[in-house]
Design a protein around this nucleic acid. Structure first.
Lengths: 123, 123
DNA sequence: GACACTATAAGAGCATGTCTGATACAGGAT
DNA sequence: ATCCTGTATCAGACATGCTCTTATAGTGTC
């Protein structure tokens, strides 16, 4: 019998994130920070398994979130090292984060319901 | 003061699904069914708020999941009504569903951690 | 000088979700 | 008979989000 190759299957979780934006808002709620540090900080949130999210994606989200008015960005031309763009959360960003928590709670309910149904069906 | 328009913002949950594939597998675990009925059955899972998923997407997933060997499809040329394609879960599909439950449990942990962090930060 | 690490960012490609439209059958209302 | 609604399958197009690759550039180490 030959085993199915599920390495590239979404069931292994490769396509299941979508938490970067609320994570960014959450990290910036603690204080202004620049892209690279934000990615490192997200990795330290328990449940993210120490995994730094793709920084490329983080930069893209920072840009789009600044465009939407959720963040304010400002360039720090430091004396040493490359220029860093520091982001700060806005009142709109805080509002968005509050909305995110409601949405994530709903979402967690759906997942819990699915898991419960799976457990009762699969035996 | 002008309020931010968060209608199209992902924080309202519009971009946060990704549960259709495990839901399909779960429904088919109960017995073979065709696309339209699968969508209706998914809507009845508690936590999906009675909302039928986009049937167009369901059909697309059924096709791709059949290609991967997770499902077997067969046409029912019924005496009345249009032809229906009935799908049945395969052993590979069961394996995939088992993997999905592990993945979703991990995912739920991440969301829980995010929510906990948000609650402690936002006060 | 080569290499690793930090830092920002654009581009391409893929998965997923949604919307629109095409096709077709069935039943009821006008 | 014609229209409308509901059932049923499916393709095309578009937007969003994630990943991978690549480019640029400064810093520190060997």
């Amino acid at each position: 019998m030959h085993t199915l190759d599920l390495v590239d299957c979404p069931c292994t979780g490769g396509t299941l994130d979508r938490l970067i934006q609320p994570a960014i808002l959450l990290v910036l709620e603690e204080g202004p920070l620049h892209g690279y540090r934000i990615a490192e900080r997200i990795a330290k949130i328990p449940g993210f398994a120490g995994q730094k999210p793709d920084v490329s994606g983080v930069y893209r989200f920072l840009k789009s979130m600044e465009r939407k008015g959720l963040l304010n960005g400002s360039w720090n031309v430091s004396e040493s090292g490359p220029a860093r763009k520091s982001y700060q959360i806005t009142p709109g960003g805080r509002q968005c984060l509050a909305e995110w928590t409601k949405t994530l709670e709903e979402y967690r309910k759906s997942i819990t319901a699915l898991l419960r149904a799976a457990r009762s069906t699969m035996r």
